[in-house]
């Protein structure tokens, strides 16, 4: 992989614990005008070819729209042949946009994501789990949106698939005070990597294991960062029977209680607007600004 500029900061200290050799590749100040697609993976070999194909096609569509891009795949010490598959892909594809990092011991999803944010060349990073699939043609719309709105987090519709059937929609609503009760925003989103890193990235607090996505969203809201929904389909979200996000063990319930305690002081208040995010499309501008309205469940 191409050598990156050395940098300093809290995330570097974190990464030094993981792999000192990687710290010299960390970028705190990133380039604009492009996107880094970050795919952390652990034992998801069967999904990776599809994820890589859709990501590289999305980079083609970005290039058509005048944006640069790279694909960064971080293998978090998989034990299912992912290493061999990625090495084969590097040789077979011979695509300089495909960058790989192999960790020699498993660090977990939030740290792998933070590593991806740190290594990203570009300020805008698409956080893409290995079992996600992009709708490649639509990535430029999200990039235009994050650039135009200065959002820290831009999300779009995720079509949920299970067993080949469409079974739902995720991330398909504007950020609201409901997020203090329920996380309906998936991590599969375009983020401002510089800003997320400045805020400490995904939490690596073991007491919050399994709820890092939700914690990040609540953290961004608490920091008054802008979350923007772009009503275009970002991609596909596969509901896998053994997916971590589907399991709710007693331990995870206990961690959820910790998360709720953390943010109960910044949760919904009468004087706060219910809508905390905005709705935006490049063709229309803001369709709803953050900071207005009230919830109502009736039809």
């Amino acid at each position: 992989m191409t050598e990156r500029q050395p940098a300093a900061g809290a995330e570097v200290e974190l990464l030094e614990q993981l792999d000192p050799a990687l710290t010299r590749l960390i970028r705190q100040r990133k380039e604009t005008g492009g996107v880094t697609i970050v795919i952390p993976t652990w034992n998801h070999r069967e999904f990776l070819p599809r994820a890589i194909r859709s990501a590289l096609t999305a980079l083609d569509r970005l290039a058509d729209s005048g944006f640069a891009g790279e694909l960064l795949v971080i293998d978090d010490a998989s034990r299912d042949g992912t290493h061999r598959l990625l090495r084969s892909a590097e040789v077979a594809l011979n695509d300089p946009r495909l960058l790989t990092v192999f960790l020699d011991h498993n660090v977990g999803l939030p740290r792998a994501r933070n590593l991806g944010l740190g290594l990203a060349r570009f300020r805008y990073a698409l956080m893409h789990d290995a079992d996600n699939e992009l709708v490649p043609e639509n990535l430029p719309v999200f990039v235009e949106s994050i650039a135009a709105t200065s959002a820290a987090f831009v999300h779009g519709n995720l079509l949920v698939r299970s067993g080949g059937e469409v079974v739902g929609l995720r991330s398909a609503e504007v950020a609201s005070a409901r997020l203090y009760d329920l996380n309906y925003l998936d991590a599969f989103a375009l983020v401002d990597a510089e800003r997320i890193l400045e805020l400490g990235g995904y939490t690596t607090n073991a007491e919050l294991a399994g709820w890092e996505d939700w914690e990040l969203v609540l953290h961004l809201l608490a920091e008054e960062e802008r979350l923007v929904f772009v009503p275009v389909t970002m991609g596909w979200y596969d509901r896998v029977p053994d997916s971590m996000s589907r399991q709710l063990s007693p331990q995870k319930e206990a961690r959820l209680a910790v998360l709720r305690r953390m943010y109960q002081q910044s949760g919904p208040r009468d004087w706060l607007p219910f809508e905390l995010g905005g709705i935006y499309h490049p063709a229309t501008g803001f369709l709803q600004q953050a900071g207005a309205g009230s919830d109502d469940d009736s039809d």
Partner: peptide, 23 residues
């Protein structure tokens, strides 16, 4: 998305009354 064009505008929130700024 699959058959007409991928870039369509899709806005399907959960059922709620349409009010100004109400998501």
């Amino acid at each position: 998305v699959a058959e007409l064009a991928p870039g369509g505008f899709v806005f399907l929130p959960r059922s709620k009354r349409v009010r100004a700024g109400g998501g």
